[in-house]
Write a protein that binds this DNA or RNA. Structure first.
Lengths: 230, 230
DNA sequence: ACCCAGGTGTGCAATAGTGGACAGAACTCA
DNA sequence: TGAGTTCTGTCCACTATTGCACACCTGGGT
């Protein structure tokens, strides 16, 4: 995620604000207004409907954001990793959480006080810049997910979800590596379909040699073929 | 859209930055780094794939953001109105536009230079605050659209889209008013379905008395019944 | 070794959604 | 006013997707 906004044409030629620390490093330490916390896989971090007063920042591990409908079905809105924020909505209006968050792997997150974060954003230009960059990138990602949902079949959505998780197209990623544990159930609720459908396509992909099961799911680059096919 | 972030517990007790102007007013004027432009209904404002170097701010009217797939199908990612920004992705990375924007009604928009906007964000806390608020709100909206798409049927998605457009649930909205022109085609590509489906449901809604055609579409509050069912 | 919970493969009837096509209504705009 | 264009209502054969059910598999306790 390219940090730093474009400022007078040069990226990153800017003095430090009062805080004076690199935001990511700052957040990595305990201190006023922030607290480092650890969660185990499956543990609930925050719950849909609870009053919202903290912003969270992921240091390590991954976190699943999900929404449960009145009818009890669950949809996964995002699977976040190190460097992502969540719960940030409470900066703009103080209502309750619109989703639940739970640890998808053991993880370390920083729980940041609402107010402290507001002050940082106001005072520290570097911090504010860091956060704005994040918001822009993340918003773009959610938009891409929406578009995907709007015009792809579930088969393609599954293929795309797998590729994105495998870091396809990212620089410095060996790709072809084994994914962290994700159940078919979870994949299903990420792409808005049923588990039997996911199972069906996973087998199809396997038969075609696009993925392998090596203790976990191993996505091969050739899986993009599914997306290209008209 | 509740402007102003939460800062040390008080919303909006903050001195003006260098710019010294209310952001919305500032943008309403021509000046360095920004240019006021007018577009007629259906006119193209920016095109998917073009190099991106401007951020746009809508003064008046509404703008449609859409993406066209390789196969030529169009999906509408958002229908924006006064007070919304678009094209802001170029603040974080200078690639090309990921969507097209065209005027859904005659409209007045401010075309803002990339760099100037970056400077404003860096220098003017009030401006930066204004923009961050916007991003937070808009991101939440896109997430809500994604969730809707993930677990509602096309009938419900249509109902929801209509209600949102009619400003259902917003304070100070008389609601029950007639919507600006939207074709079934457009509704279809907003909610990811076909026009024949939209036509079908619109008639159903009409028969049930949930909407009326009074020169345009008039949404009655009772349309929420569609969402509550099940 | 045994059990158990969570995860997976498979099949199937019932539904929902697609992608055309076509005719008529409703709007431009010269 | 009339010709063109854009919208809308409606139909239909196909295809995709759901919602179950049930057997099996696998890893971790105990």
């Amino acid at each position: 995620m390219g940090n730093g906004l474009i400022v007078s044409g040069k990226k990153s030629r800017m003095r430090r604000g009062r805080g004076g620390m690199d935001p990511a490093n700052l957040l990595a330490t305990d201190g006023k207004g922030r607290k480092i916390m650890h969660f185990r896989r499956r543990q609930l971090i925050l719950s849909q409907g609870d009053p919202a007063q903290y912003v969270y920042y992921i240091e390590q591990g991954s976190v699943k954001l999900s929404v449960t409908s009145k009818s009890g079905r669950e949809a996964v809105v995002g699977l976040l990793g190190a460097g992502d924020f969540f719960g940030e909505r409470c900066l703009a209006d103080a209502r309750s959480n619109t989703y639940s968050a739970s640890a998808a792997t053991d993880c370390r997150v920083v729980r940041i006080d609402n107010r402290w974060m507001g002050q940082m954003l106001y005072r520290d230009r570097v911090f504010s810049d860091f956060f704005t960059s994040y918001l822009l990138a993340r918003k773009a990602r959610v938009e891409a997910d929406l578009v995907d949902q709007l015009f792809n079949s579930s088969e393609k959505r599954l293929a795309r979800a797998l590729l994105v998780m495998a870091g396809y197209g990212k620089a410095g990623k060996p790709s072809e590596e084994v994914l962290p544990k994700v159940s078919q159930e979870m994949l299903a609720s990420m792409i808005g379909t049923t588990r039997s459908r996911v199972s069906h396509f996973m087998n199809k992909f396997r038969k075609l040699g696009y993925v392998r099961y090596n203790g976990g799911i191993q996505v091969r680059n050739s899986l993009v073929n599914i997306l290209l096919h008209e």
